[in-house]
Design a binder for these strands. Structure first.
Lengths: 230, 230
DNA sequence: TAGGATTTGTGCGTATGTATT
DNA sequence: TAATACATACGCACAAATCCT
């Protein structure tokens, strides 16, 4: 999955990227729930590095809003309040649409293949729900779809906003606030619709589908699970 | 201007913010032109700290795209190519409009006062052009106007994008690609229009004015200075 | 090609801040 | 209130990488 090379061939930046991506995934997938304290010393020991490069990673995560360090107290995984969540989703709606309008890029065969594989995995998850596996699949698809715009700044911000709120959505799955089976089905339908739009070359339509699904996802999260289902 | 307290009362975060804001301003105002090497040791000595906290600031600036560090070589102020500049301006247009549409906040008396003072300074600059003073005024006004939206994520991204391209615009002033007097006049007119819009409570109009001026500014930069003027 | 000079990256001990007893 | 424990922040020495002679 990640870079598996002898450390002798890994540059400092590679090591940074690996640690950053790994810790970010752990936070986004709720391996570290909001409020959890991340021990610099423990993590450094686990990754086999000293505290110095690890602190650099934590500082980056702090600038991304995923953790917060307090001198003398500790470094804690942040939580997101409902107001900030709503604002972030509003922006994500706009950015999703912009993705199909500004500097659109035709889908590569690789992207189409990824989507097909993702659809397969989603079909499996519909029959055997798994919150963490679904969240990971969701993240992979989101990041892959960013290749549909050539606008670097747009990609960067869309990714940052997604990363910032993904775990909150996952939290509402674990708390049974939303129905995992329903979420998985909706996700599968979204992928299929996007595949169809991309197959016809309608990039703007693919973006609008994403926008619609982001909107619906947030609505389901706000409304909460309807009793009588599940 | 900046925090002038005995160091004993400054927290680590305060020192970080000070160094960050200071270095960022130097880069944005072209005190450090693109390509300039920033010596960790020299800067640490200048600010009276060790390399460690300074490196933390440089790492942040790198995540913001203002510098780039290469192991064994140095840390250099980045440049922005025309393609990335165009993409960034496109996003800025959209964000400017969104500022007036999503979570708008009525202008505080403090903001109105700042705009009035800025207009005064702009009138002075029209008669006595000064690129650096104008760039600084422009940045102050931009950052102040961010208080017109309560959407934290929107503020953050708008600021990041502005910071990323401000120096490129200033560079085209220094290279006489655009006419400083004309830019100053346009800026003054923008402030006056925004003041009028805000006075009537029309926040969306104020945002659209900004969007229009961002667009015109980029057009002037692309087109270049018309011969026969100045 | 080799070696020295210079730069960023890393490891570790210590200072500083916070919470608890 | 003071002291102890433990966390992050800092300073410094050294390793690793690059460039130039």
């Amino acid at each position: 999955m990640t870079l598996d090379m002898p450390d002798s061939l890994l540059t400092a930046r590679d090591r940074f990227d690996r640690l950053h991506a790994d810790l970010r995934a752990r936070i986004c997938l709720l391996d570290y729930a909001p409020g959890t304290r991340l021990s610099e010393e423990t993590l450094a020991a686990e990754y086999g590095v000293s505290r110095t490069p690890l602190r650099r990673v934590l500082a980056r995560l702090e600038s991304e809003g995923l953790v917060q360090s307090v001198h003398g107290v500790g470094t804690f995984v942040t939580d997101v309040d409902i107001e900030e969540l709503a604002q972030t989703y509003q922006i994500r709606l706009e950015l999703a649409e912009m993705t199909g309008r500004l500097s659109p890029v035709p889908p590569s065969p690789d992207l189409m293949a990824r989507l097909a594989r993702a659809a397969d995995r989603a079909r499996t998850l519909v029959t055997a729900p798994d919150p963490r596996a679904f969240a990971q699949l969701n993240m992979e698809v989101f990041l892959a779809r960013l290749s549909l715009t050539a606008n670097e700044a747009l990609r960067e911000f869309a990714e940052r906003l997604y990363i910032r709120t993904a775990r909150i959505w996952l939290k509402s799955v674990f708390s049974s606030r939303v129905d995992l089976a329903e979420e998985t089905e909706m996700f599968l339908r979204e992928i299929e619709e996007v595949e169809a739009a991309l197959a016809t070359g309608d990039l703007h339509a693919a973006a609008l589908i994403q926008r619609a699904h982001i909107s619906m996802s947030f609505t389901r999260m706000k409304t909460g699970r309807r009793p009588g289902r599940g």
